[in-house]
Design a binder for these strands. Structure first.
Ligand code: FES
Ligand code: FES
Lengths: 162, 162
DNA sequence: CTATTGCGGACATATAGCATCCGGATTAAA
DNA sequence: TTTAATCCGGATGCTATATGTCCGCAATAG
């Protein structure tokens, strides 16, 4: 059970976008370059984010991606859902309905206990992810940054926007 | 992000073992047959459970697998850990340390915010799984079973133990 | 008109999951 | 002592998913 690395890629990218002035964005190429990632693959992931409504795309020269909502209104779960899809990790395939001890009158309308337990666990996981917003993470990153890093960052960003 | 189906296989198998008298077990073949699963693959999964100390193996004729502890002391998490391994689904590969804006004096000793958030979420997930025991699930299954199913089950089990 | 950028599909490769098979070791029972 | 049942670990093959690239098309700013 391994989560796609695309989640980390796009999460970092969104944190970067959250640090930009409202309504301003960056092209996929720049987002990939910022963390030295494969540009073509990053572009694919950003398309998924756009389809999911997490970011907005602006086509044409000078375009790129920008956040579709305020950083406070975008959670880590939104990103996971966009990249991984909303399907649960545990998928009950109803093996209880197979085998020599299944009765014809068996009642399988209610989910089995195993299924229900995993559903509860994944729900707790989602709730935790939904409670973390881009604003939270961006603020924490900014707090920990040294003055040098801050300067380097603003310089790089202005270079990309020019 | 998909969990191995082996988790469902072994979870059902353990619930079945929990319904047996204490100290009594069943061979891997029977555990596979009970839910019409691939016998060879089920055997592999049971070996993993034995290595993890969830079940005990008894070799030789009349042998098989039995629970290593009381059903109350085996949780769903124990099974997931045995089959999937304990590694987290989200694995931070530290891409924050790459790119044009990393400063030489960067402090990367503390985990980044994204990493920390996923760790919290997965911890909530694990806590929920640890709170569900085989005893809980077996009791629930028994409660929902019809008299016919109960009879069929005991007949099948006695056939396997003979 | 041209350069830039996103969009979607086709494609290729790598990794992980699914499943089988086999020889060896162990043990109960005939 | 022989036989059959059973677990163990490794080797193997197949399939699905993840990773990553490429290309033509559409949109848009200058
Ligand atoms: S029937 Fe197997 S988990 Fe629901
Ligand atoms: S550096 Fe990427 S999640 Fe920690």
């Amino acid at each position: 059970m391994k989560m796609s690395e695309g989640v980390e890629w796009t999460a970092h990218a969104c944190v970067l976008l959250a640090a930009l002035p409202k309504g301003v964005g960056l092209p996929a190429n720049a987002l990939a370059e910022f963390h030295a990632l494969a540009p073509a693959y990053m572009a694919k992931h950003m398309q998924a984010l756009a389809r999911a409504g997490v970011v907005e795309s602006v086509r044409g020269a000078g375009g790129g991606y920008r956040l579709a909502r305020a950083p406070r209104d975008i959670s880590l779960w939104d990103i996971v859902e966009a990249i991984e899809g909303g399907e649960p990790a545990f998928r009950c395939v109803e093996i209880r309905q197979q085998g020599p001890c299944v009765t014809p009158q068996g009642d399988f309308r209610k989910p089995c206990e195993i299924h229900a337990a995993f559903a509860r666990a994944e729900n707790a996981w989602r709730i935790e992810l939904k409670s973390v917003s881009l604003a939270d993470m961006a603020a924490e990153v900014a707090r920990k940054a040294t003055p040098q890093k801050r300067a380097l960052l603003t310089q790089w960003i202005t270079g990309k926007l020019a």
